[in-house]
Design a protein around this nucleic acid. Structure first.
Length: 591
DNA sequence: GTGAAGGGCCAC
DNA sequence: AAACGTGGCCCTTCAC
C-alpha cells in the first residue's frame, strides 16, 4: 500500500497542516516515543491523518523536554488536539493522551479509541487479541507490519521506513473506525463506547498524577511486619520439624514454609488431618485443636503482608515525581471493571496500618468518596422489586431491614448478629449464591438454609423473578448486559452442570457488577470536567470508591464536586432507587 | 534461566 | 472443599 505523508519540521508547515486538518471530521492520531513511560522517554513524532495523507510532526524541530509544553510554535497543534470539533481516532488512546498531556501540555479532546471499541465488540464475539495489527487483520483483512514499533525512536536521523510506519499507523485509523463503528451500532454498544471514550482522559490524567505514598511510614509498618514474620517463621519451623521423620546430620531439617507440599507433609506427620487444600478457610476449624495450625495461619498472614505489601511497592515510586503511577486497565474485566497493576492499588489491605501510608502531601488533603451499597441498589433498580426499592427509599439501615423481614421481627429488635447474617445473605445473592454454599457460610443445615433463602426471596419476589430470568435466558442467549449496553458472552458446555451453573451465576452478577462500573466511569468524566483547572487531582479508584487529592483550602469545594459527580452519574442509571455517597476528607487514605 | 500453572490471598 | 462474582501478586513447582 502506498503511503502519502508530509514530514513537518518547521512552524509554518505545522500551522498550515493544522488548518488543513481543522476542516476534517475525523483525524487519525498516533505518537512515537522513545519509551513506554512518559516520565522517562521523549515524544519523538506526532502523526495526524485525514485518512488519505498523514502529517508527521518531528517534535525535535520544536524543542526538547519541557520547552515543548510552552513552545508558541506548537500552539496550532495543541489547539487542534484539544478542540472538540474533530474526533481524534487512536488505538489505545490512553497512551497517546498521556504523552500529549505530559510533553505537549494539552488534553486530547473528543477521542475515539479503536482499542476499546474492539474490546467491547470482542466481549460479544469471544476471545480475540486487540493490538492494532490484530484489529486491522480482523476488521479490514489486511496485514499491518509492526516491526518498526520497537525500533530506535531516539535516533538522530529517523529512517524512511520508520517515518512510513508512523504515517501508516495514523492513516489507517479512519478506516478501522468506520468498520468498528458499524459493529458498535449493530451490537448496541454506542452508549457504553461513549462512556469508555469519555473516560480515557480522566484515567490518563490519574496515571500521570500518581498517588503519594509516605515511604517512611510504609517502612515502619514493614519493619513491624517483617519482625513478626521472622518470629512466626522460627516458631512454626520448630513446631513442624517435630513431625519430620528423621533429623539430618546437620541438625533440624529446614522446611520451606512457603511450600504447600512440604508444609502439608509436615502437618500430616504431626497427625493433623489435612487433605487437599490448606487454605485458611479449611484450616481454621483445626486451629483450636492443633496449635501448629494456628501458628501456620499466623505465619501466612504476616508472610502475605511482608511479601505482597512490603519493599516491592516502594520500587514503584517514580523518581521524577516521588509518587506511584500504577497502570489502570480501563476494561480490566469483561464486566467493565477496571483492573490495576504495577502495583495493584485496588488490593491494598483495608487495615489502617497500610492505608494510612497513602497520604496527602503537605498542604494537601485527600477527598475519599465511595458509593454506599451500590450493587444492591443496582439490583433493586434493575429488578424493580417494590420491597427492595422501599427499603432503600426509606433510608433505613438496609441490612437491618432485610434481617427484620427474614426473621419476622421489628426493625428495632434486630440484633447485630442478625444484621450481619442478613448482610452476608444480601452480598451472597449478588453473586448468585446457592443453598449449599449459604449453609456452609452460616453454619445452618441445608434445609434451614433453604428455608431462609425461600423467605428471603419471598420478601423480594421481583428480585427473585429477575435472577431467575437471568439464569434462564442465559441458556439460550449466552449473553448478559449492563444498563449501558455493555455485553458479555458466556461459553459453556450445556451438558456440564458446573459450567452451566457458573454461567448462570455470571449472568446474575455481570449486569450488577458491570452497571456499577458504568456508573463509576460516568462519574469520572463528570468529575474530570468539574475539577479541570483546580488544585484537585484524581489519584485512585477502587471499583466503587474515588480518591481525589486537593489543596487543603479547596477540600470542601472538591468534596462537593466529587459527591455531585458521583450522585449525578448514579442517577443517570438508577431511576427508582436513591444513590448514596459516603464522603471523607482526610490527610490519609483512612477514616 | 524463563515462563506457565497451581495454590493461596489481598481488594471490591 | 465448595455450585459466590471480578481482578492482580507472590511463591513453588515443573517443563522447556
Amino acid at each position: 500500500m502506498e503511503v502519502y505523508f508530509q514530514l513537518i519540521g518547521d512552524p509554518a508547515s505545522l500551522k498550515s497542516a493544522c488548518s488543513e486538518l481543522e476542516r476534517e471530521e475525523f483525524i487519525g492520531f498516533d505518537v512515537e516515543t522513545t519509551d513506554l513511560d512518559p516520565y522517562k522517554g521523549e515524544l519523538r513524532l506526532v502523526q495526524l491523518s485525514n485518512g488519505r495523507e498523514t502529517k508527521v510532526v518531528d517534535m525535535r524541530a520544536f524543542g526538547s523536554g519541557d520547552e515543548l509544553k510552552t513552545a508558541p510554535t506548537l500552539k496550532p497543534l495543541r489547539d487542534l488536539l484539544s478542540s472538540k470539533k474533530q474526533t481524534k481516532i487512536a488505538h489505545n488512546a490512553k497512551f497517546d493522551t498521556k504523552w500529549t498531556r505530559h510533553h505537549l501540555g494539552c488534553d486530547v479532546e473528543n477521542i475515539y479509541d479503536t482499542y476499546l471499541a474492539s474490546v467491547l465488540i470482542g466481549s460479544a464475539d469471544g476471545e480475540r487479541r486487540h493490538g492494532l495489527a490484530d484489529v486491522v487483520q480482523f476488521f479490514l483483512g489486511r496485514t499491518l507490519d509492526k516491526t518498526e514499533q520497537v525500533s530506535d525512536w531516539g535516533a538522530a536521523e529517523l529512517s524512511a521506513s520508520q517515518i512510513e510506519y508512523a504515517a501508516k499507523d495514523a492513516v489507517i485509523m479512519l478506516e478501522v473506525r468506520d468498520r468498528l463503528h458499524e459493529r458498535i451500532i449493530a451490537d448496541g454498544l454506542t452508549q457504553v463506547l461513549e462512556i469508555e471514550n469519555q473516560c480515557i482522559l480522566p484515567i490518563a490524567q490519574m496515571e500521570l498524577n500518581g498517588i503519594y505514598l509516605d515511604e517512611q511510614r510504609w517502612r515502619e509498618q514493614l519493619a513491624v511486619v517483617s519482625k513478626k514474620q521472622a518470629v512466626a517463621a522460627e516458631e512454626l519451623q520448630g513446631m513442624l520439624s517435630a513431625g519430620v521423620a528423621q533429623a539430618s546430620l546437620f541438625g533440624r531439617p529446614e522446611i520451606n514454609l512457603d511450600s504447600i507440599d512440604q508444609v502439608t507433609n509436615a502437618l500430616q506427620n504431626l497427625g493433623v488431618p489435612v487433605e487437599g487444600t490448606t487454605r485458611a478457610g479449611a484450616l481454621l476449624p483445626l486451629a483450636d485443636k492443633y496449635p501448629v495450625v494456628a501458628k501456620l495461619l499466623e505465619y501466612r498472614q504476616v508472610a502475605k503482608a511482608s511479601q505482597s505489601f512490603g519493599e516491592n511497592i516502594l520500587s514503584f515510586i517514580e523518581p521524577a515525581t516521588g509518587r506511584i503511577h500504577a497502570d489502570f486497565r480501563q476494561i480490566g474485566a469483561p464486566t467493565g471493571r477496571f483492573s490495576c497493576s504495577n502495583p495493584n492499588l485496588q488490593q491494598i489491605p483495608h487495615e489502617t496500618e497500610y492505608r494510612r501510608c497513602f497520604t496527602a502531601p503537605k498542604g494537601r488533603k485527600l477527598v475519599i468518596a465511595d458509593y454506599s451499597q451500590i450493587e444492591l441498589r443496582i439490583l433493586a433498580d434493575i429488578s424493580k422489586d417494590k420491597a427492595f426499592i422501599d427499603a432503600f427509599q426509606s433510608g433505613a439501615d438496609f441490612h437491618a431491614a432485610t434481617a427484620a423481614q427474614i426473621f419476622g421481627i421489628a426493625a428495632d429488635a434486630v440484633t447485630p448478629d442478625q444484621r450481619s447474617f442478613a448482610k452476608r445473605l444480601n452480598f451472597g445473592v449478588v453473586y448468585g449464591i446457592g443453598v449449599q454454599r449459604f449453609a456452609k457460610m452460616t453454619g445452618l443445615s441445608e434445609s434451614q438454609a433453604e428455608d431462609t433463602l425461600r423467605r428471603y426471596f419471598a420478601t423480594y419476589p421481583r428480585m427473585d423473578d429477575w435472577l431467575r430470568t437471568q439464569a434462564k435466558s442465559v441458556l439460550s442467549d449466552r449473553t448478559a448486559r449492563t444498563l449501558s449496553g455493555r455485553i458479555a458472552r458466556m461459553r459453556f458446555n450445556e451438558n456440564d452442570r458446573s459450567e452451566v451453573g457458573a454461567a448462570q451465576r455470571y449472568a446474575k452478577n455481570m449486569p450488577i457488577q458491570g452497571t456499577s462500573a458504568d456508573i463509576l466511569k460516568r462519574a469520572l468524566r463528570l468529575l474530570h470536567d468539574d475539577i479541570r483547572g483546580t488544585s484537585a487531582k484524581l489519584v485512585n479508584i477502587v471499583h466503587d470508591e474515588i480518591l481525589v487529592e486537593t489543596d487543603a483550602a479547596d477540600a470542601e469545594e472538591t468534596a462537593r464536586k466529587l459527591e455531585n459527580a458521583m450522585l449525578s452519574a448514579g442517577r443517570e442509571f438508577l431511576k427508582d432507587v436513591p444513590v448514596k455517597v459516603d464522603l471523607t476528607v482526610s490527610d490519609e487514605w483512612s477514616k
